[in-house]
Structure formats: structure tokens, C-alpha cells
Simulated scan of single mutants.
Amino acid sequence: MPTTIHTAPGRRLVFGTRGSLLARTQTDHVRALLAARMPDWELPTELIRTEGDELQTVTRPEVVWPHLGIGVFTRQLEDALAQGVIDVAVHSLKDLPTRCPDGLVLAAIPRRAVCWDLLVFADDPGPVEGWARREWIVGTSSIRREAFLKRHYPHWRTLPIRGNVDTRLSKLKGGVCAALCLAAAGLERLGWWSPSQPSQLDTPNGRFFVRPFGNEDGLLPAPGQGALAIQMRAEDARVPILHELLNDPVTAAAIAAERACLEALGGGCRVPIGAWGRPASSPHRLALDGMVLSPDGQHCIDAGTTGALTDPGLLGQAVGQRLIEQGARILLGEAGA
């Protein structure tokens, strides 16, 4: 790979992206935001294949699971960024480790999309009141979502399903499972789902039925879920420009609190931890709720408080410490964290 490092301001920024439809859509979203403010800039894209992409085609779980750890969908993008192959990497923030590699920084975090999860059905599931009598198989590769479903719907079974969003929906359509648990943000960015019509999902492969899951259901999002991370080389002089144009301060503060909580717990992206940061009712305050589930769903601990909007890291550490005092590390030990 070439190792040219661009340190001077310029009007050409090479964006790196994974090849999936969602990854390209998210990168194009950020490029469009920047192009609207800097119409004379050249913003080409470079496709980067990650370890996570390579594993999508492996069918044996015993081969896949040991590799699905922190950075599996981001490491090759970060390598390309550090080596000067690309100038900007756009990530789903929940996939990023809590600390950037040396020489790289988060230049901006744009405004967050919907951060909740959706239960997606190929057929109309009927009223929620009747779900207790159903014996469904639900596809998910998220330990957090699996633990939640085991806790609230112990009669359901979960099935690990990997692949890009469109691949998973094709498997659902094909009858591999009765439902999928997916993040709302990706489906919203693809233009397939909208909070204004939360019960339906319209895709190129047809219409699906949807039931959102959120805080009122007892499921907090993964730390950083629904947010995008714009990563650059720390020495690139254009970092302040992208920060000024693209960073949303409230979203960035909420994400910082969630990731500080995650770091305090010593967890990664494959542990049953939920965290939700948002503006508090009082001015200049940030609220944060956190939760930790046991893998079997039998136990759940939660904590929440508010803190200064200007110090989200301290707020995240405080919530993480409250969870630890209630036994979070015991539950995370059960999850292999």
C-alpha cells in the first residue's frame, strides 16, 4: 500500500468505506453533508475490505466467533487511513474500540439517527398481547439483543444470523427465522424505514412488518448505536475543518458518555451492555442510563444519572461505577468479557 501522508489543507479527500450497501450509503451521507458546505471539494471513495467482510462468507460458527471481537469491521479501514491510502474513514460508531489507534482521531460525529432496535417480521405477527403464546425463532448475532429476548420472551429461540442487512432480510423472507432484530438507524439511512411509519419496512425485496424496541421495553441501545464516526489522521490539517462543518456537539457528548461507561466496564462491542445518553431536562445537563444483562437473560442491572454536558466522560464513568457496584463485572464475566 502507498504511504503518502497528506498534511496540508487540500480540496481532495479520499473517503474509505466497506463495500456493503449500508456502509456505502453511510459514507455517501457524510460526503453529501460535506459537499453541501464545500461544493468545490473533490470527495472520491475507495472500497476497503475488512476482516468482518471476509468472515461473512464463512458458515461454520466455531470458525467465525473467535474472530468477531473489537475492531473486526474497522481495523483495515484504520490501517488504510494510517498509511495514507484514504484520508477519511466513516464507521458505524458502535463498531469502534473506545480508543483510537495512535495517530488517528475522531474528527467529527454527525447528528445521531434513531438509536433503537427493531423486531422485523416477514409476516404480520398480530397483536403484541398474543406473542407470549408464539414459539418464534429470532435471528440476531448481538449478545445484548439475545439476552434481552431471553429475558422478556423466554419461549422464543435465537439464531445467529450474519451478513449485510439485505442478506439478513433475504434469509428472513426465505423462512430461515420468524423475525430479525436489527438496528433502526441503518434501515432509516437506507430509506427503507421511517419513525413516522414505524410499523412497516419497505425494501427492494418487499414489505416487512416492524415492532420497535426501546427504553420503555427495557432494551437500551449499544453504546454509540445510531451514530457515525468520521475518523482521520491526527496530523491532517483539515481535521478542524471537518469538525466545524460536521460535528454535532450534543450527539458527540452523548456518545462520549456512553463510551466512557463502556470503557469503565471493560467491555467491547460484543458484550450485553446498553447505554443511552441524551440531553437532560435541565439546561446544560446530560442524562445517561446504562444496563448490563447476563447472557441467559436471567439477571439485569441498571443505573442512571445526570451530569454536566461539558464533562460527559465523568458522567459515563459514574454510571459505569454504579453498575460495577451492583455486580456488572460478574455478569460480564459470564459473557466472557
Rank of each mutant, 00 (worst) to 15 (best):
I5N: 05
H6C: 07
A8W: 11
A8E: 15
R11G: 06
R11F: 02
L13P: 02
F15Y: 05
L22H: 03
T25S: 15
Q26T: 07
V30R: 06
A32Y: 03
L33T: 06
A35Q: 15
A35I: 01
M38V: 07
M38A: 13
P39A: 15
P39V: 14
W41D: 11
P44G: 13
L47C: 07
R49P: 00
T57S: 10
R60I: 08
V63C: 00
W65E: 14
V72A: 06
F73P: 03
T74E: 08
A80F: 12
A82K: 12
D87I: 11
V88F: 10
V88L: 12
H91G: 02
H91L: 12
L93K: 09
L93T: 12
L93F: 14
K94T: 08
K94H: 06
D95G: 05
P97S: 06
G103A: 11
L106F: 01
P110Y: 14
P110E: 12
R112K: 14
A113T: 10
L119W: 07
F121A: 08
F121S: 13
F121Y: 11
G126C: 04
A132Q: 12
A132I: 12
R133V: 10
R134S: 15
I137R: 15
V138H: 09
I143C: 07
R144Y: 02
E146A: 10
A147W: 02
K150P: 01
R151L: 07
Y153D: 04
P154A: 02
H155Y: 04
T158H: 10
I161A: 09
R162P: 01
V165D: 08
D166P: 00
D166F: 05
T167E: 14
R168A: 05
G174W: 08
G175K: 03
A178W: 01
L180M: 15
A185S: 15
G186N: 06
G186M: 03
L190P: 05
G191I: 09
W192Q: 07
W193E: 03
P195V: 11
S196R: 14
S196V: 09
Q197F: 05
P198Q: 06
L201V: 11
D202A: 12
T203V: 08
N205A: 15
V210G: 08
V210K: 05
R211K: 14
G214D: 12
D217Y: 10
G218T: 06
G218W: 12
L219R: 10
A222C: 11
A222H: 07
A227F: 01
L228C: 05
L228M: 10
A229Q: 13
I230N: 01
I230P: 00
Q231F: 01
M232W: 07
E235Y: 03
D236W: 11
R238P: 00
L242G: 04
E244P: 00
L245T: 04
D248K: 09
P249S: 10
A253S: 15
I255E: 10
I255W: 01
I255P: 00
A256F: 05
E258C: 04
A260Q: 06
A264T: 09
G268K: 09
V271C: 14
A280M: 03
A287Y: 05
G290K: 04
M291F: 01
P295Y: 00
P295V: 06
Q298P: 01
H299Y: 12
T305W: 02
T310N: 13
T310I: 08
P312S: 11
G313I: 10
L314K: 15
L315T: 02
G316M: 03
A318Y: 04
E325C: 05
E325M: 09
G333M: 12
G333N: 15
A335T: 10
A335M: 10
A337S: 14
